[in-house]
Structure formats: structure tokens, C-alpha cells
């Protein structure tokens, strides 16, 4: 593919207070791709997402979203570049109802899904629209967290461990949703511990260790390299 990547990360450094977490991350994500960041706990996967969104403020290097340099921007301005973020542990607001949670993020690009389209995709959310956000089950909260960014028109989605803490049958369901999003042309960066789950729809794996990219494996080469991947993950 010759087109410019939707997300281009070069030499990305990030700090939490004094502790230096990312040491020169580099990878690209092209339009319509699903890329999974994998690696052990504490390797810097979540921090990578948080550095892209601007939530981690102390960072250096380059993050280009659709060609625009975002490293110096504030997180709300970065979102407006067309980024949708589904945080670790879903980030559902307890003081907001399900519907308020859903309607919270403002549109960042045109042609986001309407509320009706969302409810068609996730009928459960309509049934529970008036309940308190955190009264939903874990799976429902995860759907809400994904649905929330689909409304905004963002075409680049960052998903942080969508399978975490969910029952296997729910995980499969979430997996199908992510695959269908890929089929609709969304570009997705996925952080996952659950390798099997990531494998269901990822086009490519980016292996992170000690705040750096140490390997990239296309999903086609998976079988050949499964031993190496297992070693990276320490399983």
C-alpha cells in the first residue's frame, strides 16, 4: 500500500512522573488495518495508547494522525483529529446514565453513527438507556464504551483490552463486533493480553517490550512464528 498511514508513530517517548516508560516506540497503522499491540504486563502497551491520545502529557517524539502532528496537542484537540478511545476498564461514568454516557463525546468527524443505528447494533443499550452507567454488566459496559466512540465519527479507534474480565462467550461477541468494524473500514489499534482473542481479527501484531517495538508479525505468518510470539508473551 502506498497511501500515507493513518497513524504514524516515530521515536515516541513517554513518562509517568519521573518514570520513563516508552523508549522510542515506532510503528505505522494504515487505513482499514487492525493492529494488535501485544506484550507482557508493564511493557508499555497501555501507555502507548495513552500517549497517542495525549492523556499522558509528558511525551516526546512524533505521533501523526492523518498526517497531522499531534505530539504537542492537548487531548481534546487530538480527539478532534478523528480519534476514538476506549480506555482500559471501559471508563463508563457512574454519575451518568447509559444514554448520557453514549451521548457524551461530541462529534469529531462527520457521518458518525446515529443513536438509532447504535441501538440497532446494541439493542441492550436501548433497553437499559436510563440506568446508571456502571449498573450494566461488564460486557454491556464494554459495548457501551465502544458504541460511545462510534457516534463521534472517529475512524481511528484505540481499544484498550476490550476482552478484560469478561466471560468467554461475551469475549467472542466483542470479537465479532471488532471484526465487523474492520469490515466497515474502521482502523483499529488494539491492546490485548488475550492473544487468542486478538488473533480473531488482527491483521498484524506489534510486539512491545520495555517500551519499544521489538517485532512485527503479519497475521499470515502467525503459524510460523507462534513459538516466538509465545516467548514474547511469556506463556
Amino acid at each position: 500500500m502506498s497511501t500515507e498511514p493513518v497513524l504514524q508513530i516515530r521515536d515516541l517517548e513517554a513518562w509517568y512522573g519521573e518514570s520513563h516508560v516508552l523508549h522510542g516506540m515506532e510503528f505505522d497503522v494504515r487505513a482499514g488495518e487492525v493492529v494488535a499491540l501485544i506484550g507482557r504486563n508493564g511493557a508499555g502497551k497501555t501507555t502507548t495508547l495513552r500517549a497517542i491520545t495525549g492523556i499522558v502529557k509528558k511525551r516526546a517524539g512524533s505521533v501523526k494522525i492523518d498526517g497531522t502532528e499531534a505530539i504537542k496537542l492537548r487531548s481534546d484537540k487530538i480527539a478532534k483529529l478523528g480519534l476514538g478511545y476506549v480506555p482500559e476498564e471501559r471508563g463508563i461514568f457512574a454519575t451518568l446514565s447509559v444514554r448520557e454516557n453514549l451521548l457524551l463525546p461530541p462529534a469529531v468527524k462527520p457521518n458518525g453513527m446515529t443513536e438509532a443505528q447504535i441501538y440497532e447494533l446494541f439493542p441492550r443499550l436501548q433497553e437499559r438507556a436510563r440506568s446508571q452507567g456502571t449498573k450494566l454488566s461488564g460486557g454491556e459496559q464494554q459495548m457501551l464504551a465502544i458504541a460511545r466512540v462510534l457516534r463521534t465519527g472517529a475512524r481511528l479507534l484505540l481499544l484498550d483490552e476490550p476482552s478484560e474480565g469478561l466471560a468467554p462467550v461475551i469475549v467472542q461477541h466483542i470479537g465479532r463486533i471488532i471484526c465487523s468494524l474492520r469490515d466497515q473500514g474502521f482502523t483499529i489499534v488494539l491492546v490485548e493480553q488475550n492473544f487468542r482473542f486478538a488473533a480473531t481479527c488482527a491483521d498484524r501484531f506489534v510486539v512491545v517490550e520495555h517500551g519499544k517495538v521489538v517485532d512485527q508479525v503479519a497475521s499470515a505468518d502467525m503459524d510460523a512464528k507462534s513459538g516466538e510470539l509465545a516467548a514474547y508473551l511469556g506463556v
Binding site: 492537548r74 478511545y85 480506555p87
Partner: peptide, 15 residues
């Protein structure tokens, strides 16, 4: 209310 609960996340949604 969202910002009161979690300002960082609220801001990352573009608010």
C-alpha cells in the same frame, strides 16, 4: 458531571 468524575478521560473525548 463527567469531568467531575474523571476530567482526563472526559477531555480525551474531545471536550
Amino acid at each position: 458531571r463527567a469531568a467531575t468524575e474523571n476530567a482526563t478521560l472526559t477531555q480525551s473525548f474531545g471536550i
